[in-house]
Structure formats: structure tokens, C-alpha cells
């Protein structure tokens, strides 16, 4: 007997019972704990605090204090493994297996370029720019079962991941976004509703410039010719034949790339998206145009 029968039976039982009204409803028995403590002969004995001592008086020693010994936490010298950890950029991981899973479940559209906005919109991946998280680190778990052909833009990727994507005829780019741009990408609707103009994407900080200008890591600031050389090199290193994407029917989509100053696909910095009237307002003032194009 399945649970459906239980619902049906309880509903048909209701037919023969008095009408449910404000006078005959109640919560489940014993579902509320009594907030008061017992005051009677034995209910009020010790109230669960035990007999005498720190149980009753809460006069515990401070944490780590060893009654005058050199405490354990001072006996061992400090080693600063985590010095500067709070300043480092973090890239929460997303595996190729998860990415394939999202594509198979139709949570990601492979006919469109994939960026962090569409990954977050799938509902599987989430990140917090205000906790120094700077976007997706695509990891190689599930690289051998990854079969999708995608144009994907992530913030960090290893060599194996780049090889796994390019082997299937896909394109991968690593791109830097500053925390404010990431906030916009995480929840574009909230930003558009605020009525502000789309800002420019900031350039990477000094310690990230090398990664994002390198063709080996498919950085978005790298020379495209260098990248095509590196694609060939990587295919030889990993021993696969590089598919010729120029003959693909969706070559246009595979080549689509954002401008280094652009945050959203199809929207330029300086534009205002009006969701209410469903239109886009573009700046005309020369000074503004110059500002947003710089």
C-alpha cells in the first residue's frame, strides 16, 4: 500500500468526522518542549546540572589553561602555513564530471557560450564573491568521460582540463573578473533592477596578470595566434588529433569571446538594461563613450 492510499484514506475518513474548525484543531502531541523547569518536589532538585562544582556554577577555566603549566598551545612554536591566506584568491571547484552532468540534464545550453553566469543559473554551482571567491576552478575529475563540445569561459583551469575540452572540439578560455563584476554575473536580474549602468570589467591584479596573459593557460588576454600554437602543442603532448573547428557548423558560436572590458555576453559596459520596459539604453555622450571604451 503506497502513500497515495494513505492520503486517499485519510481524506475519506475526514468525510465521516466533524467539520474541521477553529475549535477542534491542535498541534501534534509532544511536539513542543516545555520551556519552564520543574519546581515540584523532585522535578526541581538539580535541574540537570549535577551536584556542586563547575556543572552548577559554570566556573570553567579558560580554554587551554592548564592550571599554571606552560600550556600546549604555547609549548609548540608557531608555523605560519596560513599567513596571508585571508588575502588569497579562492576559486571554488567545479569538476568536468559535474559539468557533463549539468549538460546531460539540460541545465546548461551547449549551443550558447557558457560563462559563470550560466553555470550559476544552472542552480548546481554557487560561489560568494564577498568571501574572496573569484569564480570557477574547472577540475579534471571526470575528464575521461567528458564528451560535450562547448565554448566555455572559466576563471581557472589546469592543463588536463584544457586538453579534455579541446579534444572534443571545444574551446576554453580563462578570464578574470573583479569581485564587483562577479556579483553582477551571479545575480544579473538584481543588478538590472537597480537601474545602474553596466560597469567595465577591471583588469587582473599584478599577481594574476601572468596567468591570464599566458597562451598555455588559454588566458583571455593572450595572443590568439599563440593560443592556436599552444592548442596544437597540447594535442601532441596528450596524443589526440585536434578537431578542425573551422569546419564546424557552429564555428561562430565556438569563436565567440567577450571583450576584456565586457561582463555580459551581448551587453557592453555603459548600457542600462530596463527590465520594466524591456529595452536597452545606450550612452551617447562622447565623454561617457570614451570612459567606457577605455
Amino acid at each position: 500500500m503506497g502513500s497515495r492510499q494513505i492520503t486517499e484514506k485519510s481524506l475519506s475518513m475526514l468525510r465521516s468526522l466533524p467539520r474541521i474548525s477553529l475549535g477542534n484543531i491542535r498541534d501534534n502531541p509532544n511536539c513542543k518542549k516545555n520551556p519552564k523547569r520543574g519546581r515540584a518536589q523532585h522535578g526541581g532538585d538539580k535541574h540537570g546540572a549535577g551536584n556542586k562544582g563547575s556543572g552548577q556554577r559554570q566556573n570553567f577555566m579558560r580554554l587551554g589553561y592548564e592550571t599554571g603549566n606552560n600550556p600546549f598551545y604555547l609549548r609548540v612554536p608557531q608555523e605560519h602555513y596560513y599567513r596571508g591566506q585571508h588575502l588569497r584568491r579562492e576559486y571554488p571547484p567545479l569538476s568536468l564530471h559535474q559539468l557533463q552532468n549539468m549538460i546531460d540534464k539540460d541545465r546548461l545550453d551547449v549551443n550558447q557560450p557558457i560563462d559563470i553566469a550560466s553555470i550559476v543559473r544552472s542552480g548546481i554551482y554557487n560561489f560568494f564573491p564577498d568571501l574572496k571567491q573569484f569564480g570557477v576552478n574547472l577540475t579534471d575529475e571526470g575528464a575521461d568521460i567528458f564528451v560535450a563540445k562547448v565554448n566555455i569561459e572559466v576563471q581557472w583551469a589546469s592543463e588536463q582540463v584544457i586538453a579534455a575540452i579541446e579534444k572534443n572540439g571545444g574551446v576554453i578560455t580563462t578570464a578574470y573578473y573583479d569581485p564587483h563584476s562577479l556579483l553582477l554575473l551571479k545575480n544579473p536580474k538584481k543588478f538590472f533592477e537597480s537601474g545602474q549602468a553596466i560597469p567595465r570589467r577591471m583588469i587582473p591584479p599584478p599577481d594574476a596578470i601572468e596567468f591570464y596573459t599566458s597562451a598555455k593557460t588559454r588566458g583571455y588576454l593572450a595572443d590568439p595566434e599563440e593560443i592556436s600554437k599552444e592548442r596544437l602543442k597540447l594535442s601532441q603532448k596528450y596524443g589526440y588529433s585536434l578537431p578542425n573547428i573551422e569546419k564546424e557548423s557552429n564555428y561562430e558560436m565556438l569563436c565567440e569571446k567577450k571583450d576584456p572590458r565586457q561582463i555580459f555576453y551581448g551587453l557592453e559596459p555603459g548600457w542600462v538594461v530596463n527590465l520594466k520596459d524591456e529595452c536597452i539604453l545606450k550612452p551617447k555622450d562622447q565623454e561617457l563613450l570614451q570612459f567606457y571604451n577605455s
Binding site: S10, L22, D27, C31
Partner: peptide
Amino acid sequence: YAAPPRLDIINQNVV
């Protein structure tokens, strides 16, 4: 219109 008749949920809403 044919959800399980949960009196406790009804009561929580009334309270």
C-alpha cells in the same frame, strides 16, 4: 485540493 490533511500544519497556520 487533495493534499494530505495535516491538522498540525493547519494549527500552526492558525496560531
